[in-house]
Design a protein around this nucleic acid. Structure first.
Lengths: 214, 214
DNA sequence: CAGATCCGAAACTGGTCAGTCTCGTATATA
DNA sequence: TATATACGAGACTGACCAGTTTCGGATCTG
């Protein structure tokens, strides 16, 4: 949304002639947005300053304001630009447990942790800014839930889990517990934790029979 | 901690002579701390100003600084003053489900919601202030987990759940999902949600047989 | 009533930060 | 080489806010 009518589409990928010179061109937008996300994850919304973002992107503060009218809109854009999980290429191993375990990849864990940190840094602003709340929801919250819904629905179609299971509710178990563990308990969401979550909570709640005795 | 060596113990409950005059006395500490918690829950740490707290407590800003050296310490004190759950008088109905359901009381839900809001408002500051992180942990996070651990341990002793269940992990399901629902999804943690959580997730994960067919 | 104490109100100080503006430079076109 | 554009750097402005100080009034003590 905030993205459509602004600049990204035209400028970010504008080919022009990328000269030999270092990195100027036009449109350093992606670097700036990435810098904003980094600062956001580390400092939170209120702790983030425009100077921090500019410095990290090695850009001038004025450059940021040439592209975004305010800090708030920059952040909304940055969040909206978070790369999405590819819902088309989810693991399909034939079992719910297989799919869930296949989702555990170092790359995915890092990505998820960063998003959770960003979400945490924006937590107290969510109530103040519906725009931002929508951006976060669309970029982080919904996709994560949707992945689980898809895997659970497949398991349901396969007859692996009972039709009485509340898929929508169950899809939120992993995002909830991972966020809480990262933001509140400050503990790592690693493979061990996730396997325990899958075998100890999600599969039993889904009514899958043997929680796998190794 | 930050409480012990300061003032509360002597001033908060100092009887003195509560004269007929309106409400002066000495030690409006409780009102001030309550005001701080209210503002905190509504605005978050960075959104909260000392003037807001003073205004809400109908006190002068100087009065706050006469008692606390900084905003940070005021907040730490306020959080530490949150009234604790009484771990001695938990429901004991004879079944895990009975105990968990008995924990659902309007009073408790309100109290929990406020604490979660406060936690959310402090989320982005947790990394910057270990003191505050400790206060939150001791006042909000640990007690909530401990309640569940106690109920689960009782169920274990009763033989109601299998010894293989990871009680510590399971005790975090409810706090995690309730926090996520409140702070991220902005949906109410009401009786319906909690019953669904108990019957759909916690009891199955605990290995309790019949999830109760009404 | 006289002195001491504590209060709330509000003025004040200093630092920080969002947002603006200027300027010297580097690039791109021609 | 000349012109135009967009950049990074950084000075600047104005608002806001933590923390301090002042002051007039109300209460308690004697």
């Amino acid at each position: 949304m905030t993205l459509d009518d602004s600049h990204d589409a035209t400028e970010v990928q504008a080919p022009q002639q990328p000269r030999l010179g270092r990195k100027r061109d036009h449109s350093r937008d992606p670097e700036i947005l990435e810098a904003a996300l980094d600062v956001l994850a580390e400092e939170g919304y209120d702790g983030m300053t425009i100077d921090m973002v500019a410095a990290r992107a090695k850009a001038g503060k004025a450059t940021l304001y040439r592209r975004w009218p305010s800090k708030g809109e920059l952040v909304v854009d940055a969040v909206a630009c978070l790369k999405q999980v590819d819902l088309e290429h989810l693991p399909d191993t034939g079992t719910l447990r297989g799919d869930l375990v296949a989702m555990i990849k170092p790359r995915t864990l890092e990505d998820a942790e960063r998003k959770v940190q960003i979400m945490g840094g924006l937590m107290s602003v969510l109530s103040r800014s519906p725009e931002l709340a929508d951006a976060i929801s669309a970029a982080i919250i919904e996709p994560r839930a949707e992945v689980n819904r898809i895997l659970l629905r497949r398991a349901l179609d396969r007859g692996e889990i009972s039709p009485e299971v509340d898929i929508d509710a169950l899809a939120l178990v992993s995002p909830s517990m991972a966020s809480y563990r990262t933001l509140v308990l400050k503990q790592p969401v690693d493979r061990e934790f996730l396997i325990g979550l899958i075998d100890g909570v999600i599969l039993p709640a889904a009514g899958v029979r043997a929680p796998v005795e190794a």
